[in-house]
Design a protein around this nucleic acid. Structure first.
Lengths: 155, 155
DNA sequence: CAGTAAGTTCAGTCTTGACTGAACTTACTG
DNA sequence: CAGTAAGTTCAGTCAAGACTGAACTTACTG
């Protein structure tokens, strides 16, 4: 691996982006970014700590969290005691699907709001009806899109 | 407005949700939540401050921010000096459209990552190619979905 | 059964950013 | 032109949470 510095800078960029977009901890983003461009694609905790200048504790906590939400895999090599981490295949579709869950929650919140109004059908409820209809629409359509992509992918 | 307490609790729930989902400041979320269920739908800064137990400064900063990102409108009543705020019509579609912008940025990041690899076409690049293809797919499809909804809405 | 390497846990530090309160600006009103 | 109400700005406070470093657990190895 020649351009380690460039790849590190890339990991950092990914981290900043994820932090802003989804509230993902900076260090978790760095790990994700590095695992996207490192060679080989599997890295152990010590390697991650060294290249990212992070403490063992931080790596441990963040890898566990990334495992928990399903973004990475933990694998072991026969005869070795160390754990190796890698980007999980299918991560991105799952991640999007998970983010799309929020849409359903917002549709439900709109419902709860309408229940508070004296006249949900009237002009007073227009705000929440618009919110409800939009989110209901996407709650219906987004899973179909993901499905469509998974089918296209298989071919 | 009889059930003020229930509506306040609702505003709080909206605030917590938006905070987690999009990193929106708690107080901005409270304002949005309250503007969704208040009666009348227009409220001035003093009213907002009182009902939400917030300082003038906080209301001022947050309403300006909400105006800036286009979630609310500022209107005035002839003969009154105060500004009134209300949920902007079409807010939700715009908000989603804005959040979908991130998809394009991620597709671009995947490209930048591939450029760092020695063999982007090979096994080494599989991680980033998957990421790229997925985000490219959604970058294409999501605007179409929003368009579709806007058309359905018009009828 | 010491010695060591891998990994976890947790108390403490540090940074970030939301929020308050007070000083300030602006503009209407008697 | 004083008086007042509306709104802005900003320095300071406070809380949340990311990260470190050290103590601890676990399990392999000579």
């Amino acid at each position: 691996m020649d351009n380690v510095q460039a790849r590190l800078a890339y990991a950092e960029r990914i981290a900043v982006f994820y932090e802003k977009a989804g509230g993902i901890p900076r260090m978790a983003g760095r790990i994700m970014g590095w695992l996207l461009v490192c060679d080989p694609p599997q890295q152990n905790a010590t390697e991650l700590g060294q290249v990212l200048s992070a403490s063992k504790g931080s790596i441990s906590t963040m890898t566990r969290w990334l495992l928990h939400i399903g973004l990475i895999n933990k694998t072991t090599i026969p005869g070795e005691r160390r754990d190796y981490f890698e980007i999980r295949e299918g991560t991105w579709a799952d991640l999007l699907a998970q983010q799309f869950q929020a849409v359903g929650a917002f549709r439900e919140l709109a419902n709860q709001g309408l229940a508070l109004l004296n006249d949900p059908e009237g002009h007073e409820g227009a705000r929440l009806r618009e919110m409800h209809d939009l989110y209901a629409f996407f709650e219906r359509e987004l899973p179909l899109l993901i499905e469509k992509w998974r089918n296209e992918r298989k071919e």
